[in-house]
């Protein structure tokens, strides 16, 4: 565990996630690379594996995947950290979404709004690929887990693209394969 964190860092943690909120276009996961940069590379509060664990826990548990954010906060600073990161990541985007959906419902067909939809789509998708890359990093970096990890990633992609199987089954399968020590 890394614990260079002290409670006086809490406002900084909160403000960083508050600022990230408005950048989380395409879902909270698109800001995962930035959270990784801040928590792991810049501050050293978490390690690569802890970061990926938070995301895996949120994926394994029911509910929106954004719940990896309070888990990251929890890993850094316990319940206070969970509150700081979760309220931070949700508050601005929530208020903005409410305001924009009320406003946008009235002027949906204007050129500006249509250009926003068109122009941001490829950016969003590029960010989702980046998030996949960051999640795969622990497997790419550690030779012990490289073969099994990348194999499981490739299998998951193939099953998701070729079948209609629910993701819960893949997550369970990943858990079993991992528990057997194959990853």
């Amino acid at each position: 565990m890394s614990s260079a964190f002290v409670m006086t860092d809490l406002p900084d943690l909160f403000l960083r996630f508050l600022a990230l909120s408005l950048l989380s276009i395409g879902g909270g996961m698109s800001t995962a690379p930035e959270m990784h940069r801040y928590l792991v590379s810049e501050r050293g509060w978490l390690q690569d594996a802890e970061f990926t664990t938070a995301i895996a826990l949120a994926q394994a548990a029911p509910g929106p995947n954004i719940l990896f954010v309070p888990v990251l906060g929890y890993q850094v600073a316990g319940l206070a950290g969970a509150c700081a990161t979760f309220i931070g990541i949700l508050l601005p985007s929530t208020l903005l979404s409410l305001a924009v959906s009320r406003w946008g419902n009235r002027r949906r067909d204007t050129p500006g709004v249509r250009a926003f939809i068109t122009g941001l789509a490829p950016l969003t998708i590029g960010l989702l690929f980046s998030a996949g890359w960051v999640l795969a990093l622990p497997f790419i970096r550690e030779p012990d887990h490289r073969l099994g990890g990348l194999g499981l990633i490739a299998l998951t992609v193939a099953v998701m693209l070729k079948t209609r199987l629910g993701p819960i089954w893949l997550i369970l399968m990943g858990g079993v394969i991992g528990a057997l020590g194959w990853v």
């Binding site: 990926t52 994926q59 999640l135 497997f139 990633i153 998951t156 893949l170 990943g174 991992g178």
Partner: peptide
Amino acid sequence: GALRGMGAVAAGLMVAMACKL
């Protein structure tokens, strides 16, 4: 190990979603 396996699946789900989109 189970969490590591689920982590790999999480990475795969993200990549697959991006591919679909």
